[in-house]
Amino acid sequence: MTIIMVSFAAIYFIFEIVLNVNDIDNDTSNVFLLEWSKGRLVFIPFALGAIGGHLFLGTKNDFFQMSSSLYPVIILFGVAALMVVLTYLVSFKKSKFLLSTLLLAGFLYGHLFWSMNYQS
Rank of each mutant, 00 (worst) to 15 (best):
P45Q: 05
G58F: 07
V18I: 15
D23I: 10
R40E: 03
F43S: 15
L33M: 14
L48Q: 08
G39M: 12
F32H: 01
D62K: 11
L57A: 14
L41M: 12
S37T: 10
K38C: 01
N26T: 03
A50I: 04
A47G: 09
K60T: 12
I51Q: 06
S37Y: 07
L19R: 10
D25I: 09
L41G: 02
T59M: 05
N30Y: 06
N26F: 08
F63Y: 07
N22P: 03
L48D: 00
L41N: 07
E35M: 13
F63R: 00
F56D: 00
L55M: 09
V31R: 00
R40M: 09
V42S: 12
H54N: 10
N61Y: 04
N22T: 01
A47E: 04
D62S: 12
G53Y: 06
T59I: 05
N26P: 00
V31P: 01
E35N: 15
I24R: 14
F56K: 03
G39H: 04
V21S: 06
L41S: 11
D27H: 15
I44E: 04
I24S: 11
G39S: 14
G49V: 05
W36Y: 14
N22H: 07
I51H: 10
V18E: 00
H54S: 10
R40L: 13
V42F: 11
F43Y: 14
D25G: 08
I51P: 04
R40G: 12
L33Q: 04
V21K: 08
I24H: 13
L41T: 00
F46S: 08
N30V: 10
F43D: 10
S29L: 15
P45F: 05
D25S: 13
V31K: 09
E35P: 02
N20Q: 13
G49H: 08
K60V: 09
L19V: 01
V21M: 01
H54G: 01
V21F: 15
S29C: 09
F46Y: 14
N22A: 04
N20F: 07
H54L: 11
N22S: 08
F63C: 00
V42N: 09
D25F: 04
N20Y: 08
K60W: 02
D27I: 07
D25R: 11
G53D: 03
V21I: 15
L55N: 00
D25Q: 12
V31D: 04
G53R: 07
